[in-house]
């Protein structure tokens, strides 16, 4: 039993590190894209609202597992050089796109939750559209975004587990490999993996709850 742990643990830690890296990259790029899409939905013209709306629904309406298969298997068949992706690149792209839809919903909801009077007051002071957004609306909506954003980050971390299907060497993949070597310890290995995910996600969940108490929740169906 102890020998098993000594053998398996370093690999699992390596997997956990990879999970951490991928989730951080996806959170970063996903938040960038999502902020853009959310702004387009809340403040854009008719066409950006519709276009980004379709984008969000397309990604919300399909399972993440299908999305990762499409990015990894379908995109390369277009024969375009940009889409010849390694599994790591495909993983980061798919997870970032997935993250962006949730971030977009939060950003647009938070912008719309700022009272209308604030916009009107800024315009009465001669602020243009960008100034209104940057100096008046965003500072107020930023706090509202924080609690649901924490929830999305937990979601992203948990979804990295699915990336094991295309061979990204993250935590679940390392566990699967370890189980090939120690088949009789399958339950112990997966419980250890679950514990590792718990140690990563639970603090974020607690932080989210704390932020919610402090700044109030934005009522969203995420």
């Amino acid at each position: 039993m102890l020998a098993m742990y000594q053998n398996v643990f370093p690999f699992l830690l390596q997997g956990l590190w990879q999970t951490f890296v991928i989730s951080m990259l996806a959170i970063f790029f996903g938040s960038l894209v999502g902020a853009f899409v959310g702004l387009g939905r809340a403040r854009g013209n008719r066409w950006t609202v519709r276009g980004f709306g379709a984008y969000v629904h397309m990604l919300r309406g399909t399972p993440f597992l299908v999305q990762i298969y499409i990015v990894y298997f379908v995109l390369p068949t277009t024969n375009l050089a940009v889409f010849q992706l390694t599994s790591f690149q495909a993983a980061v792209i798919a997870l970032s796109l997935y993250t962006s839809t949730y971030v977009a919903e939060i950003v647009s909801a938070a912008i719309e939750a700022v009272p209308r009077g604030q916009n009107e007051a800024a315009q009465a002071h001669g602020f243009n559209g960008f100034q209104t957004l940057w100096y008046v609306v965003l500072p107020q909506s930023f706090k509202m975004m924080m609690p649901p954003m924490g929830g999305v980050y937990v979601l992203v971390i948990k979804n990295t587990a699915v990336l094991s299907v295309i061979g990204v060497t993250e935590l679940v993949r390392e566990a699967n490999v370890s189980i090939q070597r120690f088949p009789s310890f399958i339950l112990s290995v997966f419980l250890l993996v679950a514990l590792m995910y718990f140690c990563y996600c639970y603090p974020v969940l607690r932080l989210t709850r704390w932020a919610e108490k402090k700044w109030g929740g934005l009522h969203l169906n995420v």
């Binding site: 399958i186 339950l187 679950a194 995910y197 718990f198 969940l205």
Partner: peptide, 23 residues
Amino acid sequence: IEAIRATPLLVQIYVIYFGLPVV
């Protein structure tokens, strides 16, 4: 609730499907 919310569904599926028979 906390245990479910802080772990991935895929790991939960593995624990139940592969794990329970070896208990």
